[in-house]
Amino acid sequence: MRILRWLVAVGVIGAGGLWVLARPAPLAASAVEGLSGDITRGEAVFWAAGCASCHMAEKAEGDAELVLKGGQRFASEFGTFLAPNISQDAEHGIGTWSALDLANAITRGVSPEGEHLYPALPYASYAKMQMQDVVDLYAFMQTLPADPTPSQPHEIGFPFSQRAAVGVWKLMFVNTDWALPGNLTPTADRGRYIAEALAHCGECHTPRNALGALDTARWLAGAPNPSGDGKIPNITPAKLTWSAADIVQYLTTGFTPEYDSVGGHMAHVVENMARLPESDRQAVAEYLKAVPAAE
């Protein structure tokens, strides 16, 4: 049913001639010109953006988290995506990519071959990243090891196996507008950048529409768990009544106010957040407090 609606939408839009517009739209070659990368800052971007959580091997711990050999599986309504190798291997990873190539992949969802990437790579969030952060990230990733494991094909059927179809989806859903618009305090503003552009909190905590795009009207209001059982909790003030200090503690140690301890995919997020300066976790807490309550 949902898939049908998707097809209808794609068909209608396609007939309207939007296919032309839906071609991959890479950044201008000048986008990263004049920027030089800082490895230390890039490492913070790397953890905040959670690249390793998806691209390391399943269950990797410690230094193995930095071996971005891919292979983890991500179930979705449209099929199962397998994270590719993005290590520095020249043949099987992205060892030969330029900073511009990386920027195109993660902020535009366009590969160096000019093809659309699937939004399982959360470029709908990373589209809001500052170019300086991308260049810093690039500098840090170049210090990471190469691994020769070949990337595995995704397990998705027609029509989603057609990368061209992604173009229409992007036109409809990828933009650089904040989900929480308007002027915020400097702290909450920093929190918004971390939560919406880097840490992609919304990709898990926000429900999706029939086309698999985030329902920004119910931003962070909780969603079914794509991997099957259980629900990902609502973290708007409607349900999350924790104090800012409670949220900071959770993002630092994984302890809830009842001192239960975080589990599931959120445990990765907490590990990543725990590596950032305390001020960044406070910023995220302040941002969550500013999000409108939604049931």
């Binding site: 768990n225 630092t252 589990g263």
Partner: peptide, 21 residues
């Protein structure tokens, strides 16, 4: 010390516990 223990609790919960609804 709490940070270390918290990491040990959640490392196990991450792999072996179903998050509640």
């Amino acid at each position: 010390g709490m940070g270390q223990v918290g990491a040990a609790c959640s490392a196990c919960h991450k792999a072996y516990r179903q998050p509640e609804d």
